[in-house]
Write a protein that binds this DNA or RNA. Structure first.
Lengths: 126, 126
DNA sequence: GTGCGTACTCTCTTTTGGGAAGCATTCCCG
DNA sequence: CGGGAATGCTTCCCAAAAGAGAGTACGCAC
């Protein structure tokens, strides 16, 4: 497998300047590529999970950032929040269709990074 | 098209917890998914460019962040810095092999975001 | 009625990032 | 012959944002 597919994306017309500065693309890109956004989307790509579970999977995230990031992802329509009014509260988070599309693009990236990370940190010069 | 391909990436063994908190993957992931890191990598995927050119393409970036981000990407071995000792100075930046691999994974993601950004910002509910 | 577990929310500290000026060097213009 | 422009950074200062940690509401078990 590997990089056997240098399909070379059409490199669409980025004109001059990747994106206009105030463009929606910038906003959304910031959300999905945020430190915790990526991690949560990848975590959720393995199936619905509840708050405390996500907290465990995304090691090191604070409760504040978890809540905040989930809220952003939900507002963007990537994540579905399903709160059951039971006590103690139970809230399940899952990817929407849109979220799954995105995760499918994110996963290869994360996989590549995971595979090369050590080499990159140790011997920057490739 | 759409979600016609729930190919579901193999979802490799993320065990429990996407990455250990202090893991190199985290570090590298943060670098490449940083706000300006993505933009610069994508910009450079269209060919070598010099400082002032990058500054223009990545609309809105400050000189400080451009210098800092390029330094990080160079340290990680994604970007090559080629300074010619002429006056006025001329410095060309380009992707290394590793940088191109990464950009190839980044482009589809950026393209998807560009395509859906407006809908996401306007009508979060999909 | 005390204490626990869950899902947040609030407050305060640390880090990040933008803006602008500075710098080195040579050529161009007046 | 002197002043200003062009280029690629670097440094300083301060506002904005990220992040940690404690606090809150809620019912149930004991």
């Amino acid at each position: 497998m590997k990089v056997s597919t240098p399909v070379m994306v059409p490199a669409f017309p980025f004109a001059d300047g990747i994106f206009p500065a105030g463009c929606p693309s910038r906003t959304v890109l910031d959300h999905v590529t945020s430190k915790w956004g990526v991690l949560l989307l990848v975590a959720l790509s393995e199936g619905p999970q509840r708050w405390s579970e996500l907290r465990r999977r995304a090691q090191g995230i604070s409760e504040k950032m978890l809540a905040q990031t989930l809220k952003t992802l939900e507002a963007d329509g990537f994540v579905r929040r399903d709160a059951q009014p039971v006590i103690p509260p139970r809230v399940d988070y899952s990817l929407t269709g849109r979220g799954e599309e995105l995760a499918a693009l994110l996963l290869p990236l994360v996989a590549w990074v995971a595979e090369h990370a050590e080499a990159i940190v140790n011997r920057p010069q490739s």
